[in-house]
Write a protein that binds this DNA or RNA. Structure first.
Lengths: 207, 207
DNA sequence: TAGATTGTTAATCGATTAACAATC
DNA sequence: TAGATTGTTAATCGATTAACAATC
């Protein structure tokens, strides 16, 4: 089964977060209405989502947390480690590289790349290499996921280079809406200004 | 007219970006099918969105860019300046404070707050004050929008304090799904791990 | 067993797209 | 005028919710 829908996968991530929390505090099973309430969706939505992915619970008995976690992790590809690179070691790029609070070991930021020689360094937790080495690094290490944190004007070029070298999924923090350069590449744009404009609209609307 | 729908407002921001670009390169009017193509939506969508906000074009003549820009800016509240504060002057918080690439003057990040005295400083472009002063600052300056960039465990508390002091819209970068503490507050969560999980799902799906 | 919860189908809701009359 | 584009209504599409039989 193939989903085009981004939202269902976001919910899968959120269900996972919720059940990790309740596992930690000692739960061994969980019901769709409780999980829904804690995640902020309806019980129907929970059961529907699980059903679409073939996740089965126990009639009358809810879902076993360990089984559920295994199933959700499998959907999200968390059984393997994903190596991720970052283009741009400026403010945002370095902040993301320093992000160590992933809840699992399955996502690893392995390298940054920057054109500025002053920023290159092999000493940090995440080394910063010259941008010219990015394409080879992607190929040599079979990297599939990249983060773009370069200034606006370079963003489309960087994306094109990433895709040419084999990257298949990109998270873009540059303030431009990037076009997917090929069918094979999935891009998600995170745009601070647009997010703030959105919030401001809803704040003003209520006045 | 009140829209609950976040997506239409995101598109309004994107239309704005697109027409700013075409204004810069000399366009004075624009057609729905061109604007749609450049923004990545259908022409129907463009006209429908405009129609919902009462934006009128010229039959046969498209939309005048200046009028359109004025109308979109008005929707997004860009006629006034919005002062924004940041809680947390760690990696992410400082990176966001250093973000100077807003396309307009209408969003101003005016202060950061942090519990760590080492991080407080009045010298940067954006001053960093002690966290204990945040609530008073919000009240004294009638701040309505806040960004949360504190560690996970503090996030819900910080949000509660912001809202109590008068903040009405929050952009949360902490890796927890924050509950809206009241009806009057709009919250949007940006979660790096969830974004990456999403991308990884779509990358793996195609394999 | 009786009661509660799942899994799935049907109904509803909302958003997007298509179509086309109006008209510049 | 003829042709092209808007503005809006209707049709379609997709996602969410409700309902309920199955069953533990």
């Amino acid at each position: 089964m193939i989903f085009k829908n981004r939202k269902i996968i976001l919910r899968i991530s959120q269900y996972k977060s919720t059940i990790i929390y309740y596992k930690q505090i000692g739960f061994t099973k969980i019901y769709s209405d409780f999980l829904g309430e804690k995640t902020g969706v309806t019980a129907s939505q929970v059961r529907k989502d699980f059903s679409l992915f073939g996740i089965k619970g126990n009639k009358r008995g809810g879902y076993f947390i360990d089984d559920l976690l295994t199933a959700l992790n499998k959907i999200l590809g968390k059984e393997d480690t994903q190596k991720v690179i970052i283009a741009g070691a400026g403010n945002i790029g370095s902040a993301l590289a320093g992000y160590k609070k992933f809840h699992s070991e399955s996502i690893k930021i392995v390298a940054c790349f920057d054109i500025d020689p002053v920023k290159t360094s092999k000493k940090g937790v995440v080394p910063v290499f010259p941008y010219s080495e990015m394409a080879d690094f992607i190929r040599d290490n079979a990297i599939e996921v990249g983060i773009v944190a370069v200034p606006e004007v370079f963003a489309q070029d960087v994306v094109n280079n990433m895709v040419k070298a084999g990257i298949r999924g990109i998270l873009n923090f540059a303030p431009v809406n990037i076009k997917e350069p090929s069918e094979d590449c999935y891009i998600n744009n995170v745009n601070l200004e647009i997010e703030l404009e959105n919030i401001i609209y809803f704040v003003k609307k209520k006045e």
